[in-house]
């Protein structure tokens, strides 16, 4: 038995070791690439190479000069490619929308397969996301009007509507009013919709995070309180107990915050004590409407807690959710202390 088990163990160990080494190889390869890129993009490298090449050409008596100049050409072309790529990255970092040319691989493609690509950069949580692409071509005979050919914009962004507005199909030649296209406004509007969507989704994420943090804090506060009364009891219990402690404490920690529609304009809210709510945002993240229900009845109090007076942006709601629960737990603890 043991003799059978041992090779297995050894084999497993070896497998682990191989896996480990392979991951090391991958990291080293990546490092190598990064260093190579750094060297290639340095200006001095290029100058050195050029000078070296001149000297090579001068003493062409060497046998190896031919192969060595071929290597030089390769490195130089690589440097050029690197420079082009660096410039593209720079443009992409600086400008939110960049264009590029694509060839449609379809042999039957219209307009000899030339396609204009638009690249929309999006940032979320201090990171560049994968850009969205919109490809345009010119399918109409005797007209230079553009048309959306392919795109990677998700359906929550009303691209068809925008295309119909700004990039209409050419009207027949005998029409009195010729349809005009406005690529610039199209691009601007698409980008605005994309960025707005991501901002709305991000602020809903912030609200969920604030609610979760407040709930955790509330549970911790409750725990401290209860700790004096009885030592046992985990956090979840603390949550439930908090709910039982009177109307004002509400214990109504938000337990569920999520976007309720594809465009991330509506937020559905759920509290621990069964209250449910719906919050409607306008395009730019301002709070449009809020409604909260408690047992099939409208709950104006909670609604006012969420949104009051002038602060009608979702960011304010986020702040208030984080802040109000803090004060609430404090009052709760005071109350329960008085009670005990």
């Amino acid at each position: 038995m043991t003799s059978e088990a041992e090779p297995n163990e050894i084999g497993q160990e070896l497998d682990y070791e191989i896996e480990d080494l392979q991951s090391q190889i991958a990291t080293l390869k990546r490092h190598l690439k990064i260093h190579a890129t750094t060297i290639l993009s340095a200006d001095s490298t290029r100058q050195l190479l050029l000078r070296h090449r001149e000297t090579l050409e001068e003493d062409s008596l060497f046998v190896s000069s031919e192969t060595s100049s071929a290597v030089h050409d390769k490195v130089l072309s690589r440097i050029d490619a690197q420079h082009a790529h660096d410039q593209q990255c720079l443009y992409r970092t600086g400008a939110a929308v960049t264009t590029f040319k694509v060839r449609d691989p379809d042999p039957n493609a219209v307009d000899n397969g030339s396609v204009l690509g638009l690249r929309f950069e999006v940032m979320s949580k201090t990171r560049f996301l994968r850009p969205y692409y919109v490809m345009l071509n010119r399918p109409y005979p005797e007209s230079r009007h553009l048309r959306v050919h392919r795109h990677t914009v998700p359906p929550c962004i009303p691209l068809p509507g925008l295309a119909a507005r700004y990039l209409p199909a050419p009207s027949p030649p005998d029409a009195t009013h010729q349809a005009k296209q406005d690529l610039l406004r199209f691009v601007r509007h698409v980008r605005r919709e994309i960025v707005r969507y991501h901002n709305r989704a991000a602020v809903i994420g912030d609200l969920a995070e604030a609610a979760a943090a407040a709930a955790a804090r509330g549970a911790a506060g409750g725990d401290e309180e209860r700790g004096r009364e009885r030592r046992e009891g985990d956090e979840e219990e603390g949550d439930e107990e908090g709910e039982g402690e009177g109307e004002e404490a509400g214990a109504g920690t938000l337990v569920d915050v999520r976007a309720a529609d594809p465009q991330a304009k509506q937020v559905s809210l759920a509290w621990a004590d069964g209250r449910t709510g719906r919050l409607v945002m306008d395009d730019d993240g301002g709070v449009d409407k809020v409604v909260v229900f408690r047992y099939d009845e409208q709950d104006g109090e909670t609604r006012r807690e969420l949104v009051t007076g002038e602060d009608r942006r979702l960011e304010d709601v986020v702040r208030r959710v984080g802040w109000s629960t803090k004060t609430r737990t404090r009052t709760t603890s005071r109350q329960s202390r008085a009670a005990s």
Binding site: T37, R78, Q82, H85, Y133, M135, R150, T152, P154
Partner: peptide, 23 residues
Amino acid sequence: NAADGGWSMYADKRKESPLDTLL
């Protein structure tokens, strides 16, 4: 949705940050 076939290379989950200067 509108980028199938060869165009799917624009829609896949590859990372493509402009801050990545690797070729």
